[in-house]
Amino acid sequence: DLNRALGKLSERIKRAADAEGETAVVLSPFTAPQRMAANGSPGIRKALEAELKRRDVLVKNGARLEVKGDYGEAEDPAGKAVVRIHGRLIDRDSGRSLAEHSVDVDNLTSIAGLVGATMSVPIEPVPADRERAIREGLSRPSAHVSSSRISAGPKSPFAIEILAGPSGGAIRPRTAEVINGQAYLNIRSSERYAIKLINDAPFEVAATLMIDGLGLFAFSEHPEYSYVIIPARSSGVITGWHRTNDEAEEFVVTEYPRSAAAERSLAPSPDLGVITACFAAAWPAGGNPPLDE
């Protein structure tokens, strides 16, 4: 969904760059409103770079044309919650804006990862009721913390826990606290961390993991993967970025996968990281879904 939206933005950039006789652009970070304390720019940037490349627009640091922009929560014409990404193409020599374009991301998992959402969403039979719950959940986050266990509410069967420790040493659950409805914890720059995904529901779930808007499989040899399965009433620990089914590259605070050479220009924010896990029921194709699905 993010790629589809940024594909449209890329087309607009491609046309404007063609008109200028340029084949390369430099990408600046996409900013979120301060109150969101979000950090989806790395995810936006990686998807945008891929879509530009598909259209023969190179991303190059010295380019004369610069793409920059911002994003935030919005509503589409039908009243559905979306993330609206607004991009601009700037001529760095003259400071002139050559093109601008807004695109909407409407997939709820993508939205949650970009804004760093914490919410329970009821499986309402009435779509309008579910939409209302989503808008409410996005505007009023509801993080619940019990020591190191972080959930979207005291009765929610889904939770995450961050395990952190020195590089090469043991990792232990890290205590979190709630500020303005969102969970926070500290991880030092020298530390590594892992993410425990907890499913206390009586059915298996598909858990989607995003860090700074980048999916767990963003650097994988299997980019077609999108989630991990957590069996009923169990948990799993994700220790790093997925590379292959046998190898993960450990999560460290200061950089994205070192071995992903092509991603050198993608750097984490120096002060804030955002981890988002999304949970949905899962069942074998041909098997039976939970009754409320």
Binding site: I150, Q182, A183, Y184, R188, V253, L272, F279, W283, E293
Partner: peptide, 20 residues
Amino acid sequence: AEVERKTGRLRAAISVRYTK
């Protein structure tokens, strides 16, 4: 072995912000 699965609608999103 890979088992094809279907998934339902999002039930919960949980985020944690970490400061360095």
